[in-house]
Design a protein around this nucleic acid. Structure first.
Lengths: 225, 225
DNA sequence: GCCATTTTGTGATTTAAATCACAATGCATA
DNA sequence: TATGCATTGTGATTTAAATCACAAAATGGC
């Protein structure tokens, strides 16, 4: 499925810098693909010559560690994915899996490179976003390590609320065991801490449905615990 | 101190893509500065309008976490530093401190941006390297978390040997407490584990001077421990 | 060379969280 | 609707590593 990027409501900040023939080039050289919850979008170790633009949905980025698969982060639209692959050795360096029904554009690598070449604002935006990811990843690492589980769980809930769902009520997009994997703890600890937060009236849960009741308390836990 | 980039032996892969007037632009708009061991090169929270090119020496990148300063990684030449700052809000998002006597080029932001504009190979190289950092940081996080201290220490030693000093003998550029900070453990644990490795004849130490004796064993510990 | 400060070594104790074990519950699909 | 697999809840136990405490070395400035 090909679409006219000119009309795309999901267009990225970077692509918004493109105009005229650049945008036509993009329109002519990408394919929109839908994925269902749980589908693998890219798989570490496989070959790829596409940049992926996440236009709709939610995905997890995960990487094989020395012992087990580790969720590195979640990504939501609009964002480019798989840049490192495309820039580097063409082998995917991590896996991406859909957490919800998701739509992405597969953009041919040579097209992408062409755009970088011909449009410096586009390149600048890409660099800008890569830099933001870097900072974010530094920050996350430092926090993950210096806090204990309770604080990390609180931080994750706040992050989902603020940055992903823009709401104090949302459906957890991960199982407890995946949450453990993301915040570097065990599935059992996640279960215990969630119950605890509920018992303390800080959140309420029905199944995977979360509501943050006392945001201030949660922020305090995130900062201090 | 201004220098002619054309003649610079430390020139980066990216800058090597520049030619003629681009290189002159760079030559005319940067300053080489020397730092002594321990000197702060950039400080988180301060204002900056320069990209920094690390041409000689060794630095640590550190970031203030919720409780304490955390060393994120070491960086060695040739590499650009402080890109995120320059691209983003002009406030340094992390600190950089010299671990050895170090030389850097301060490149004016507008010059750097001009180079990105006028030379797509340059931009491409910058993007390429940012992507490599991202992968590397994902990988490091996953390993750090899934291994225990012994394995992380072994990995750090191998990393220094292979990627920084290119030798099985080298001087530790960090104190044990800094090492602990880098590999997410306590100063005491670092001390204990180093002694252990020495007792087992895997490394030898005199002060900060390290020699890796049984590299195979160390690799095994790095992988399994 | 001397003194103050930082760094390192090592034992004893505490602790957060992993692991183990098993029951209960939910969810998907045949 | 029944059957099977994945997810969740919770107690008991173990464990890696932090913390505490203190001594010994090393380092750097004067």
């Amino acid at each position: 499925m090909k679409t006219d990027c000119q009309l795309c409501p999901y267009i990225s900040t970077a692509a918004a810098k493109l105009a005229g023939c650049d945008l036509n080039l993009l329109s002519d050289n990408h394919i929109v693909v839908s994925f269902k919850k749980g589908d693998s979008i890219i798989k570490q170790g496989t070959y790829s010559t596409n940049v992926i633009f996440l236009r709709k949905g939610l995905v997890k980025i995960h990487i094989t560690g020395p012992y087990s698969e580790q969720i590195v982060k979640l990504a939501k639209p609009p964002t480019y994915l798989g840049l490192p692959t495309t820039m580097g050795d063409k082998i995917n360096q991590y896996s991406i899996t859909a957490l919800e029904d998701t739509e992405v554009c597969f953009i041919d690598m040579s097209t992408f490179r062409q755009l970088l070449k011909s449009n410096d604002d586009f390149a600048f935006e890409i660099i800008h976003s890569l830099c933001r990811y870097e900072i974010e990843s530094f920050r996350r690492c430092a926090h993950r390590v210096q806090k204990q589980t309770r604080g990390n769980l609180a931080e994750m809930l706040l992050d989902m609320s603020k940055n992903i769902f823009n709401s104090d009520r949302f459906q957890l997009p991960l199982s407890q065991s995946e949450i453990g994997n993301l915040i570097d703890t065990s599935r059992e600890s996640v279960s215990r801490m969630l119950s605890e937060l509920e018992k303390d009236g800080i959140i309420s849960m029905q199944g995977k449905q979360i509501e943050i009741i006392k945001k201030k308390s949660l922020e305090l836990i995130s900062q201090n615990g």
